[in-house]
Design a binder for these strands. Sequence first.
DNA 1: CTAGGGTTAG
Length: 664
Amino acid sequence: MRSLRVRDALVYHDHVLAIKSGLALSIFTCNQLIHNYSNNGFVQEARKLFDEMHQRNEFSWNAIIVAYIKAHNLTQARALFDSASHRDLVSYNSMLSAYVGADGYEAEALDFFAAMQSAHDSVGIDEITLTTMLNLTAKLGLVYHGKQIHSYMLKTANDSSKFATSSLIDMYSKCGSFHEACNVPSGCDGMADLVSKNAMIAACCREREMDMALNLFWKNHELNNIVSWNILLAGYVQNCYMEKALALFAEMIENGIGCDEHTLASVLSACSGLKCLKLGQCVHAWVLKNGCSSNQFISTGIIDLYCRCGNIRYAESVYAETVIKNPFAVASLITCYSSQGNMTEAQRHFDSLTERNYVAWTALFSGYVKSQQCEAVFKLFREYVSTKALVPQAKIVIHVLGACAIQAALGLGRQLHAYILRMRFVMDEKLRSALVDMYSKCGSIMHAEKMFRLVRDSNRDAILYNIMIAGYAHHGLENEAIQLFEEMSKKSVKPDAVTFVALLSACRHSGLVELGEKLFISMEEEYNVVPDNYHYACIVDMYGRANQLEKAVEFMRKIPIEIDATIWGAFLSVCQMSNNTDLVKQAEEKLLKIDIDNGSRYVQLANLYAAKGKWDEKGRIRKKMREKEAKKVAGCSWIYVADGIHVFTSGDTSHTKADAIYSI
DNA sequence: CTAGGGTTAG
């Protein structure tokens, strides 16, 4: 309705102007009309008027070029630019900023900038050109090029306007050079203009320096606008201070700052992070009332909120109503279905996307890995690699390596390693860690170690150490595991809960009771790591394997946390060592109360009674298991043969070639 | 005298 009225007004305006000026519109008037049409989204009308003009000047050409740029038609804009009879620096700058602002036109932007410097029109470049180029280097994260432009700006005295200052701060910050951003003259004190101050607050938030951001924010706070508040709000959300974000939002409302679409997008993220459905729904209602649901950040935020709060039906119904099927929203849905193990729906959503971006791909890969559907991961990866339009992403390769680790698919893992080298991926710690883990879990501890040693000392983080220590532990190399732990401590890399699970399980498998006890005590006292159920279970199991029932019982009594199925399970295997039926009964009762659906527990119990020759007890447990319809997944082996994967369980005769296999 | 291009937040 509103667009129609604007159109009528423009046409009417057109007539009035024509009559007033004796039917022949001046160039000036036509140029203004082209702008009016363009600003209201009527690019065709603008073009019609442009075509009808008898005379045109630079302003006319620029107006029509900008009209196409605003309509996101860069091809047409460029065609007009190339054919223009009048061109000036403004035409060039308009075209350049269009390329910089659009996604996927980075190369065109660079070429265009180069052409500007050698153009035969010789329009040259000015401060606007340079700030636009700063924007591009910021987008690409190329601090080296950003510095070159900065130097050029210094040389040509184009470095001190408020536009230059804010762009420089923004560029250095987005390129990861926070220090340089702080050193931009009159930028860091927040006393320059408001945009520069806001850019600086954003830089602090990016650097996770929230105290610094707050200091800046409250300096001359009466000058702050809604952008300043939104930056701080987004800063809290991105640094996971969700409660603080909501408190700031409340303050915004109290102070009459109001809120806009940026505000609401951040508030929705905070609600998702806190799984705060109530407030999130209030925002949803507000959005519906005020008609800003067409904003993609907002609709994605609402879908994400319902997904994270586990309400996938609402998420689906909101998604069904969105006009533009945003890949980010779909990624959220995929993640939600994946977490429920519903990969059919996850895949369906993925298939529905016409434009699959890297977020959607990553979500699907992650889902298949989490639900341990490794064959699906490998199949998806083949599809991904053959999609020529995609730039290969390290994050996705990391997921596929994870699937190799689960499946112990060493051959595939090695192929991936070769692929990584061939594609010249940057070997960062995450990629290297994934490779170490893959080699270790595929049984090739030697290659895992080799990869680990390739990481420079200073780049070895706790995660990498954990992977390698766990690798040694699984391969029965407890001395190497301990040694690496000592190296870790020496390099003052802080061990965490995962480190100690790996270490304690090395101790329990190799019967190093004293060392296990020592490590267990030191983890809390020296390293400030609070033991959780896995650590307690390790120690209980360690005593059990070492045949030290009394110590295990005593240890069980002292456990300060609620004893869960993991710990009772460990205790049950300790009972296997003793003849104390009372203890078994006790453990059984507790265990079945906690872990009623887990078939493994029933089987463990039944086997325990069977081993003691108590067949009636065994029968009783098996009957209970049938009553509860608890199922245990059978352990299995598998082998890759040329045409695919073959899975076997104990005593399995279901394979089509079972007779031949057994005879061999 | 009056026109067009560049900066900060999700």
